[in-house]
């Protein structure tokens, strides 16, 4: 190796060092530790008792965990079937070049994203209150029915409330991705379809949807991964509890309660791994679908 080549290798590792050192210490090492932790029971950091697969066995028979899983899946399905179609529809409307004020609409619909989740929770906690809250007052005003002032959002309809909040928060955000994808749709394909006499619906089904499919797959995956890790919104909204009858308990909230309220970092790690397997499984299924799609194309 010549001197200059040696110097270049030193340069490379010097440039990588700040990142790599922190990455190994704060990412790789905890990841390995988390596997070890999941086979232990702990009482706060520093004390461990080996329990083997005990945590996972308990988890499997833990009704609270299944409840948390059910709640979280309901929320994720809400994202998939309500939020994403709305985002796509809005993107289709805003994609028209002839539409005036597109930039302003885009900014307005995106704006809730600027608020961090904690701040959204505080605002929501007040907005969904009985009587004084914005939501009930607005519904009562529109319907002129004062009974709606008493709708117990945070007591009875916790998951519904969370889904409504997520619509406000994320429809505009996912719309940005869909808009970017729509702008990449091949214009000549659309024109060709028009010449062949395709109506708006046929154009949508046969030209636009197939071309935005890769981005749509990516957005669905991101949105599912995000939804299944729901934490801050219900945690702050319900004051760290699962809410009445644990109606708002999510997987990550249950992880947090076990690890930091009860001090069992081992059981918390087991919950973390259960969630990670679900997320990685989801990603694998989606990658497979994309591959098959490409082979058929």
């Amino acid at each position: 190796m010549s001197v200059s080549q040696k110097q270049r290798v030193v340069f490379c590792w010097a440039m990588l060092a700040p990142f790599l050192v922190l990455f190994v210490v704060f990412m790789v090492y905890p990841l390995i530790q988390s596997a070890a932790l999941s086979t232990n029971q702990t009482y706060g950091p520093g004390t461990r008792t080996f329990v083997g697969a005990g945590n996972f066995k308990n988890l499997f028979h833990d009704p609270q965990f299944w409840k948390a899983l059910k709640n979280t899946v309901i929320y994720a399905l809400g994202s998939l079937f309500i939020q994403l179609p709305l985002a796509f529809g809005l993107a289709l409307v805003l994609n028209s070049r002839r539409l005036r004020g597109r930039a302003i609409y885009r900014l307005v619909f995106f704006s809730p994203q600027l608020m961090g989740l904690v701040f959204v929770s505080i605002l929501s906690a007040l907005a969904f209150e009985k009587r004084a809250g914005l939501v009930n007052k607005a519904i009562a005003w529109v319907t002129t029915n004062r009974d709606f002032l008493e709708t117990p959002w945070l007591q009875q309809y916790v998951m519904e409330t969370l889904i409504l909040i997520s619509l406000w928060l994320y429809v505009g955000f996912n719309m940005i991705y869909f808009l970017a994808a729509l702008q990449n749709v091949d214009k000549s394909l659309v024109e060709a379809a028009e010449i062949d006499g395709a109506g708006p619906l046929a154009k949508l089904v046969h030209v636009i949807v197939p071309s935005v499919k890769p981005v749509a797959t990516f957005v669905i995956l991101l949105s599912m991964i995000g939804s299944l890790q729901l934490f801050e919104l219900p945690y702050v909204l319900l004051d760290g509890s699962g809410g009445p009858d644990n109606k708002g308990l999510t997987i990550v909230m249950y992880l947090y309660q076990n690890g930091f309220d009860l001090g069992d970092l081992g059981y918390a790690s087991a919950i973390g791994w259960a969630l990670a397997f679900m997320l990685i499984g989801l990603a694998a299924i989606q990658i497979r679908m994309v591959r098959r799609e490409e082979r058929n194309a």
Partner: peptide, 25 residues
């Protein structure tokens, strides 16, 4: 290095909550 960095992208951050706390301790 590239492989490890790309692999880290699929690690859900929630998995690291408990072990990171122990590490910082």
């Amino acid at each position: 290095v590239t492989l490890v960095v790309l692999g880290a992208l699929i690690i859900p951050p929630t998995l690291l909550i408990a072990p990171s706390y122990e590490l910082l301790f």
